[in-house]
């Protein structure tokens, strides 16, 4: 039997997802046994043209990580879609935009100004900006164009499966790989995780059913390690985040930041977390309630840390 032809690609991402694929440990041997890696820029020497030359649907499955932010990302996404039988949005960036997606709070112009002019460490008196095309003595140089809107993979091409996480936990990665290797695939367009419910389900911290009088940032308090962090005023996103990761962060005292995305069936993860937070404030005084709410720093950034491009508005009406 032919080995499964597997491609891995990184678009706009940090590289963490590529590392995460290795986190499966010795199971990688099992992968090597049953699969043949045909494309993996971060680890092996392939050229784009190698992929271009492949006939359509030559690749059995492509694990695509990273958001779609540049013309190169878009080009590769489309090409890999054509060449792959199964397209997997692997990791939060490909799935829901993730940290690169936060760029959607700003316009491209303001981001470039910030980076090439305003940051304290920048010295750019000539106001030189990167150009997509530059004439050099050696010839024309082309670098990919940065888009105004960060998109997810599914907003660019048709995606068959989604693997959540920033990066996906080892067991989630294995769940996806196992399914691919064994050909026992779930319903198309589903999110592959051990849970479709919110993280709280698998978190061992004790919830006492307590409302919140004040919200804290993690450095401001030392939480009781046995008790629910949200009930202690920390912005633990577990209530509105898909589980499957094993709730390691909250159980280690760090609030969940929401990287597994919305729970099954929920559109706009951020507004649902917002609603939950707004509903558990321990006060019946409108003025006090507003003061408590004001204790949440950068709410939009917190609620949409991973999911801005898949939120209802997808981006801010920013300048």
């Amino acid at each position: 039997m032919d080995k499964l032809k597997l491609a891995l690609y990184w678009a706009s991402s940090c590289g963490g997802c590529d590392i995460a694929t290795l986190a499966i440990g010795e199971k990688i041997l099992e992968v090597a046994e049953t699969a043949e890696i045909v494309f993996w820029p971060v680890a092996m020497d392939f050229k784009y043209k190698d992929v271009e030359r492949m006939p359509d649907k030559r690749i059995d499955a492509c694990l695509f990580n990273g958001a779609i932010r540049t013309s190169e990302d878009e080009h590769m996404a489309k090409m890999l879609r054509t060449k792959s039988k199964i397209m997997v949005a692997y990791g939060s960036c490909a799935y829901e935009g993730c940290i690169p997606g936060l760029a959607n709070f700003f316009s491209l112009k303001s981001i470039l100004e910030r980076v090439y002019e305003e940051t304290p460490s920048t010295d750019n008196p000539g106001k030189v900006y990167p150009q997509t095309r530059v004439q050099m003595p050696e010839g024309d140089l082309e670098i990919p164009e940065l888009k105004n809107m960060v998109k997810t993979l599914a907003q660019t091409v048709d995606v068959d499966y989604f693997v959540p996480g920033c990066p996906p936990e080892e067991k989630t990665t294995w769940l996806a790989l196992e399914a691919l290797l064994n050909g026992k695939l779930p319903e198309r367009r589903s999110v592959i995780s051990h849970s479709s419910k919110a993280l709280c389900e698998e978190c061992s911290l004790v919830r006492e059913g307590r409302k919140v009088k004040k919200f804290y940032r993690p450095y401001e308090v030392i939480p009781d390690p046995e008790k629910c962090l949200l009930e202690q005023g920390l912005l633990c996103y577990g209530v509105a985040t898909r589980g499957g990761c094993g709730a390691m962060c909250p159980q280690a005292g760090m609030p969940c930041t929401g990287c597994y995305g919305a729970v099954e069936g929920v559109i706009d993860q951020g507004v649902h977390f917002l609603t939950a937070l707004g509903s558990i404030i321990d006060s019946t005084d409108p003025v006090e309630i507003k003061q408590i709410v004001d204790g949440i720093v950068d709410p939009a950034g917190t609620f949409y840390r991973y999911s801005l491009p898949v939120s209802l508005f997808r981006r801010a009406k920013s300048v």
Binding site: S196, K197, C200, E201, R207, G209, G238, V239, E264, I280
Partner: peptide, 8 residues
């Protein structure tokens, strides 16, 4: 099927 028991 959807309840995580978060108690909100």
């Amino acid at each position: 099927l959807f309840c995580s028991g978060c108690r909100v």
